[in-house]
Amino acid sequence: MTDLLDDFLIRATLAGIGVALAAAPLGCFIVWRRMAYFGDATAHAAILGVALALAFNLSIMLGTLVMALAMALAVSGLSGRGRAMDTMLGVLSHSALAAGLVAVSLLQGVRLDLSAYLFGDILAVGRSDLAVIWGGAALVIGLIWARWSALLTATLSEDLATAAGIDPRREQLILTLALAIVVAVAIKVVGVLLIAALLIIPAAAARNFARTPEAMALIAAGFGAVAALGGMAVAWNFDTPAGPSIVCVAAVIFAASTLSGLARRAS
């Protein structure tokens, strides 16, 4: 096994699968709760976290985790106040991205490959990166597993959850935390610009084949893992960037799923 992990391609593939498995169940909640833009804003804030980490000599992981969490909390705080959420998220999301890019460029004496953070650099995943990715993924899966029913009830209706003794704000907070962790571990794999794609596309593709929420999460995890494997194969054979290749394969799976869904409804 240690010999196996010496191969950068194996490490990259395992990293991709780890992120895909954690992103799948979380992505289902993002789709059900219509939080796609929310995921985007949180991911974009991570680039600001990269700047923060470089400026204060922290680990990139910690910096992105802190910024993603701060953005996610700010957005959930605002969402309860009846503003035009769509516009608000658009403003926050793109402002965070722009501010992050400016902040990184202002840092003196840092030689930085910005595209590695924007689009991921999965082939550079080391052993410790891999440990962090799988650790974070396990944490997110465990968190969602433990709160599954409460999360689902709160997603369906906040009042229904309250009447059953569940605090919907707490469940929202758990999702927010899980999202920040996924963003922090996925940045190396697909980069800030494409994290939301990894959350949403496998979940959306799974919808057509699922009759229960659990089935949808499992199928999404399967699709995510296939996309990670397929994307790596494409990247290897055609010398394309790995992160975007993974998302492209996921998009193809989504298209196939949508077509088969249409075909089934028509017959």
Binding site: S149, A150, L156, A161, R211, T212, P213, M216
Partner: peptide, 13 residues
């Protein structure tokens, strides 16, 4: 986007 059978709904929470 949320697949949910009646039986599964009764299982909440």
């Amino acid at each position: 986007t949320l697949p949910l059978t009646v039986r599964r709904f009764l299982d909440l929470p």
